[in-house]
Design a protein around this nucleic acid. Structure first.
Length: 433
RNA sequence: GGAGAGGUGCCAGAGCGGCCGAAUGGGAUGCCCUGCUAAGGCAUUGACCCUCCGGGGUCCGUGGGUUCAAAUCCCACCCUCUCCGCCA
């Protein structure tokens, strides 16, 4: 959620910033939100005034009754009842307007960072780093899609996954399952230097999923367990972002850096039929996520650090990769600034998005109400509090990296050489055959 | 899932229709006293919104209701604890 106050202090600035997202309808929404905000404040002021009167009259009534002056008291009560009636109607109007405004604000995307590149779609995303480690040519035996290789080796059995759970579920077997788990362990271990490991719940409340921005707009993309009103997390980001909601952190504790392994559940509504083969898109997959809570000043360096971590993981696995910056037209709803790490997979001849690292500003913290308090040089806490900045990114999303390994490490005989960085997690399996 | 108890400020804990944004104790911070330490004295100590900067409003688990007036009464829900049941 963007700062409602900006609608009054810098309406033109908000409109200019959001217009960079190439969605004209947004500007109408901003205008409408600004109108509702102004109306709401008028109602609020009027209401406060009446409440003040009711409060003071009620106090007088109390004193009069104590002194036995029933007659005067009853006169005042009549007056107060009238105030009460008009307050009630204002309260109703207030609720209506604020519900409308809240819907609008929840739907408004974050303001893009000034340095985020302009653009209309993913075609406009500039390459920031790389490609690194990309060969100019690939031998024919590497031009085989991973599902063909993996099924032949018996390490991927999507047919039976479908029998068990339906379309777009995957199942790894034997060394394939070991490889998947090795990747998560690899993803966690290399980030344990500065991140606290968390094992968060995978089912979360509506409030939790609203804080990250998935709800209310993207409800169709998530699995809802209706009986208990719980959602399956689409990413550990959802659980981690709400970990300190309704709390006020100390700036001396910031940045707080967390990492978590979790399953991720996605309905993939609207993408039926796309990337249905292999491991590229599934309803459930495993991922190691990084997340940081920071002051605004700390955020840019943390963003760089996270992008570096996601990218170097691919480098250490010996996979060809590049880093893209996401342009304003392609940015996610909650994002302030975003970088993607992509890995080249020769079998499907595509760059696969394996990590997306974003800085959210205070957009998520405002929705989740996560604040921090500053301290001066003498360690004295300052008055009031601010919203923290959040950042997150995938340290390692298992399925696509898994697929990229199968395709990049395929040998002429159809076997797979396990990248050296994973040997220690692979129970001595160095070649999958 | 069943029975009972309870949710109040940084913590503990009182209040159970008006004088309560809230006693008391602890903690923290500042000042005084003190050679240092200990002890002591005094004071300060929640968040949020609006503001014509005088002030006004909201918040005692959450949401509704009763009342001139709700932390206090009523209803629903959530959460915590204890016992029982079930269970990796």
């Amino acid at each position: 959620m963007i700062d409602q106050r900006l609608l009054r202090t810098d309406l033109d600035g908000v409109k200019a910033a959001l217009s960079r997202r190439s969605r004209p309808k947004l500007i109408d929404d901003v205008d409408r939100a600004a109108q509702l905000d102004a109306r709401l404040r008028d109602i609020q002021a009027e209401r406060d005034e009446i409440r003040a009167k009711v409060n003071s009259v009620s106090k007088d009534v109390g004193m009069l009754r104590r002194d036995g002056n029933v007659e005067e008291a009853e006169k005042l009560q009549v007056q107060s009842r009238e105030f009460g009636a008009s307050e009630k109607s204002l309260a109703g109007e207030h609720d209506d307007v604020s519900a409308l405004l809240n819907d609008l604000l929840l739907g408004l995307p974050n303001i893009p960072h000034a340095d985020a590149p302009d653009g209309a779609s993913d075609a406009d995303n500039p390459v920031i780093t790389g490609p690194i480690g990309l060969n100019t040519t690939f031998p024919a035996w590497q031009r085989v899609p991973h599902w063909e290789t993996a099924e032949a080796l018996g390490i991927l059995d999507n047919e039976r996954a479908t029998k068990i759970s339906g379309a777009m579920f995957t199942m790894q077997r034997g060394a394939g399952a070991t490889l998947a788990r090795a990747l998560t362990q690899f993803g966690l271990d290399r980030n344990a230097d500065v991140h606290e490991e968390i094992r968060p719940p995978s089912l979360v409340t509506t409030a939790t999923l609203t804080a990250t921005g998935q709800l209310p707009k993207f409800a169709d993309d998530a699995y809802l367990i209706e009986r208990d009103d719980l959602w399956c997390v689409p990413t550990a980001e959802a659980s981690l972002t709400s970990i300190f909601s309704d709390e006020i952190l100390d700036d001396t504790d910031l940045p707080i850096r967390l990492m978590a392994f979790s399953p991720s559940f996605r309905r993939e509504a609207g993408s039926a039929g796309r990337d249905t083969r292999g491991m590229l898109r599934a309803h459930e997959f495993d991922k190691v996520e990084l997340l940081a809570f920071a002051t605004p000043e700390q955020a840019p360096a943390l963003l760089d650090d996270m992008v570096g971590r996601a990218a170097s993981a691919m480098g250490d696995l010996g996979l060809p990769y590049r880093v893209m910056e996401i342009c304003t037209g392609d940015m996610g709803q909650s994002h302030h600034r975003t970088f993607d790490v992509e890995v080249y997979a020769p079998g499907v001849d595509t760059w696969l998005e394996v990590s997306s690292v974003s800085w959210f500003g205070d957009y998520q913290a405002r929705r989740g109400n996560t604040r921090f308090r500053r301290h001066d040089e003498d360690g004295k806490p300052s008055k009031g509090s601010e919203f923290v900045h959040t950042l997150n990114g995938s340290a390692l999303a298992v399925p696509r990296v898994w697929a990229a390994i199968i395709e990049n490490y395929r040998n002429e005989d159809g076997s797979i050489t396990v990248p050296e960085a994973l040997h220690r997690y692979m129970r001595n399996i160095t070649v999958i055959r």
